[in-house]
Amino acid sequence: MEEMVFQTRAIDSIVGANLIGKRTQYIPDPGKDYKIRIRVRNLGVAPASATDVRLHFVRLLDTTRFTVDFARHMGRTTDQADSLPVAITNAPTVTTVTTVGTVTNISTLNRALLDRLQVVDIASAAITATVTSAGISVLNSQGQSFGFAVTAITGTTPAVDVSIQETMDGTNWKTIYDFERVAANGYFTSPLLQIKGNQIRYVRTVTGTTPSITMSAFRIQASTEGLFIRRMIDRTINPLTLSSTTATLDAEAATAVQLTVSLGACTTVPSYQLQSSEDGTTWTTIGATLAGVALTQVQAVVSGFMGKFVRAIITTAGTGVTQNFVVLKAIR
């Protein structure tokens, strides 16, 4: 295999002395002797009499031939390991970003990737009567912790009961978590909870005479799974009336339920009983009867719960009873 290259370039100051010949030839047998012969042949115009032909040097090198595939191997066009090196000889142009627009909408952000994200659902404002918020989307989150802050409260015996509810259809709402009654300034939060619905809302029940309560509400959305806890505080069950019942708590997926009763002064204490149902209509007694104790808080727990709904019922009516609250809690 031979290579013969002619090129023109100035090598000194003599005009016309710029024709250089370069020849590369592989020697088939390096053990033999070779001679170099230079032959000059006139073409259409004879060279000048002062024309010189000079052999500058002969270089002998040991070389090894390799076959180089400059096409990507086996047709792979996306494998970076097969990429050919490219030398960049010019200075690349880099466009500098000088203005970044304000992000105004993060509704498409996958919040499941965030560890913690606080969302203000209700800005701080004064309320004087019961208020139920609109439905709030809670998609793309593993757990939710709910909270509110009371910064001012006035009136005669003013108080607020805050209840968190969820829904799948925007119409039928179920209690997730009831906060204890609040009658003073403070900051209140729930545990990190599992949510089954796609919307939540806040129900703020205001009591007292000429009350005014300044408060805000917020959530902490988390990428970690929340606890399955459902907590309902009932103040409608009448301890003086036999068979009076609490509201119904959706406890499906819970493995244990707890009944807590707090009483004030009593002449005769009432008794309470937990009941379970699969359809919210037919009820079955579960656990033992819980007898109230005056000026005391008592509890009853039923483990191995397998029902869908749970409630409490009065099995023995009391007399002269001051009932503070009744709490139903379902946990897993």
Rank of each mutant, 00 (worst) to 15 (best):
A247L: 14
G226M: 09
Q194D: 09
T175K: 13
L240A: 13
I195H: 02
F179H: 04
A222I: 00
A254N: 03
S262A: 10
S244E: 01
E278T: 14
S243M: 07
S190P: 09
A288V: 14
S271M: 08
Q221I: 10
T289S: 12
Q258F: 09
K196I: 10
W283E: 03
L240G: 04
S190H: 02
T281D: 10
S243V: 07
D178V: 05
S244I: 11
V206Y: 07
T282F: 04
L242R: 03
D234T: 12
P211D: 15
T245I: 15
Y272A: 08
T210A: 15
L242W: 01
P191R: 07
I200L: 09
L193P: 01
P239V: 13
D250M: 08
A247I: 11
G264M: 01
T207G: 13
F228H: 08
D250K: 02
P191M: 02
T267P: 02
E225C: 07
C266D: 01
M215S: 01
A256C: 08
F218K: 05
S276P: 00
L249Y: 01
P239M: 11
N238P: 03
R235Q: 04
A251M: 01
V261C: 07
T268L: 09
T285L: 10
I233G: 00
L259D: 02
R235A: 07
Q275N: 06
L274H: 02
A265N: 14
S216W: 00
R235M: 10
A247Q: 12
Y187C: 00
L240T: 14
S244W: 07
P270F: 06
G208T: 12
F188R: 13
V257F: 09
S190G: 05
R181E: 14
Q221P: 00
Y272P: 13
D250V: 14
S216A: 10
R204Y: 09
S271N: 14
Y177R: 12
I195Y: 00
F188P: 03
E180V: 12
I213A: 04
V261S: 05
A251Q: 02
S223C: 10
S212N: 05
A251D: 01
R219A: 09
R181W: 00
T205S: 13
S271F: 06
E252Q: 08
G197M: 09
Q275P: 06
E225R: 14
T255Q: 04
S276E: 06
A247P: 09
V257M: 10
S271K: 12
A288G: 12
S223I: 05
T209L: 11
T241S: 06
Y202T: 04
C266E: 02
A254M: 11
P191N: 05
T285M: 07
A265S: 15
C266F: 03
I220L: 09
R181M: 12
T189I: 13
I176T: 06
A288S: 15
V257Y: 08
S244C: 05
G287C: 15
I176L: 15
S243N: 15
F188A: 05
F188D: 05
Q194A: 13
P270W: 05
T281C: 03
I233M: 11
T246E: 00
